[in-house]
Design a protein around this nucleic acid. Structure first.
Length: 416
RNA sequence: GUGGGCGUAGCUCAGUUGGUUAGAGCGCCAGGUUGUGGUCCUGGAGGCCGGGGGUUCGAGACCCCUCGUCCACCCCA
């Protein structure tokens, strides 16, 4: 057994999976950059206070933060998500609005790991600040939907809800608190605990005994302002205009405290594990203000890399891309010919690998096979004497002699 | 944080009611084939049986603790 392993909830992403991750990020970048979103790279840690603004009923902040004191005595925390950082960056740099950015990178939450849930986990996402227009809500959702399609996913469902503005949300929360308190004796112990922290989140309970009471709970739409209701209706009709199907779920309450008005979630119906939510987002109109900036509306989403890739596995789509080299050079003379030729191949736009330690031709051919290269170039004493190279297309069982000076042209033909 | 399953070779896993030097398949290395991989044959390397303590003449197996991992809850991506 090795002396060291990765820390709990972390892991090494090795090939070929690592290539898939990179491809995932590239597909995402292409999708959102087509809509004018610019790449932002916020730091991975911030002053703890930045994240505390996410709200004291947000467990991500209260229970799961990776925080520590640095050598300068600052109390900092690894980011549990990136929306807060983006809003902090907005306040710090005051860019012209609308400010549309996208990000990709790891977040950290101190949780008990299980499938689809890690302590270091990657998300990609977008944030758009400074615009209140319902068309923006629909654009943001449409981009997520486009991205899923680009990956090849077909079994992703969109749930959508509105939580009303800040005042509506609070009024609704109080209403729910009253309702659930009345039925407290029938609730599970877990839900009772949730009730004292954040009544909205009781709606999220998956426990069977709670379901009946949740079903009878008042819906947000009964206590929502006209303005919020109009906004929501506008978002829905903008989605309809793009033929994006959705399910209105008036029990959809998301875990982060800052959500206002439009909230949405993407669920993979191809997954049957506990974690079928592969992405989610919504409006967070008060967050910039909470971070000391001007009142600024904002909306965005975050998609989990792992869970989305699990969904891809379940649907059998988006395989890892090929990263094999074009050519494998076998040198049975002394290794210098492979050394020179590989270098020249790479300089001329071919990818090339070789064997080391002057092993037997058999061993080198085995390495060539394993490398996945489409062509083996073999150099032995005959080839050196005649300034030629033996070119062997792997898998063909055939090979032929090529003059050393013609090798690049010949490879271009063979590899095209 | 709570509950349960599982930790044996690089990987996937056998290992009988506790009984000598712990096995298989795959992978890896070498040879069969002094210039040839992907098939085949032969051989080889590689294990503090997750760690610590205990029971026993004797523990990979049983007990306790601990760490890791998986699953569910919680929470969320």
């Amino acid at each position: 057994m090795p002396d060291f392993k990765t820390s709990p909830g972390t892991r090494d992403i090795l090939a070929p999976h690592s290539a898939r991750w990179r491809a995932f990020q590239e597909v995402f970048a292409k999708t959102v950059e087509s809509a004018g979103y610019n790449y932002i790279i916020p730091p991975m840690f911030e002053d703890l206070d930045v994240f505390l603004r996410l709200g004291e009923a947000t467990e991500v902040v209260t229970k799961e933060m990776y925080d520590f004191h640095d050598k300068g005595g600052r109390h900092v925390a690894l980011r549990p998500e990136q929306t807060a950082s983006v809003c902090r960056a907005f306040v710090e740099h005051r860019p012209v609005t609308p400010w549309k950015v996208w990000y990709s990178g790891p977040n950290f939450r101190y949780e008990k790991p299980q499938q689809g849930r890690y302590r270091q986990f990657d998300q990609v996402g977008i944030e758009a600040l400074g615009v209140d227009d319902a068309f923006l809500d629909a654009e943001v959702i449409a981009l997520a939907s486009m991205f899923y399609s680009a990956l090849g996913l077909n079994h992703v469902e969109l749930s959508i809800n509105t939580l009303g503005d800040g005042g509506d949300r609070e009024a609704y929360s109080n209403l729910l608190a009253k309702y659930f308190s009345k039925h407290e004796s029938s609730l599970t112990a877990e839900s009772k605990a949730t009730l004292t922290r954040n009544p909205l989140r009781v709606l999220d309970s998956k426990r069977e005994p709670d379901q009946e009471i949740i079903a009878g709970a008042p819906a947000i739409r009964e206590s929502i302002s006209k303005q919020s209701a109009d906004h929501f209706a506008a978002v829905l009709s903008a989605l309809d205009a793009l033929n994006i199907s959705y399910k209105i779920n008036d029990r959809l309450v998301r875990g982060l405290d800052y959500y206002r008005r439009t909230t949405f979630e993407f669920v993979s119906t191809a997954l049957d594990a506990a974690h079928t939510a592969i992405g989610g987002g919504g409006r967070y109109d008060g967050l910039v203000e909470a971070l000391g900036g001007p009142a600024t509306s904002g909306i965005g989403f975050a998609l989990g890399l792992d869970r989305t890739l699990l969904a891809c596995d379940a649907e059998g789509v988006f395989a890892a891309p090929q990263t094999d080299v074009d050519v494998f050079v076998v040198d049975t003379v002394d290794g210098t010919h492979a050394h020179d030729l590989c270098h020249q191949l790479r300089a001329n736009g071919f990818s090339a690998d070789r064997a080391y330690d002057l092993r037997s031709i058999k061993a080198q051919m085995k390495s060539a096979d394993r490398s996945g290269a489409r062509v083996a170039l073999i150099i032995g004493s005959d080839e050196v004497a005649n300034s030629t190279i033996m070119l062997r297309p792997m898998g063909s069982g055939e090979q032929y002699v090529v003059s050393r000076k013609d090798i690049f042209n010949e490879l271009k033909k063979v590899l095209k």
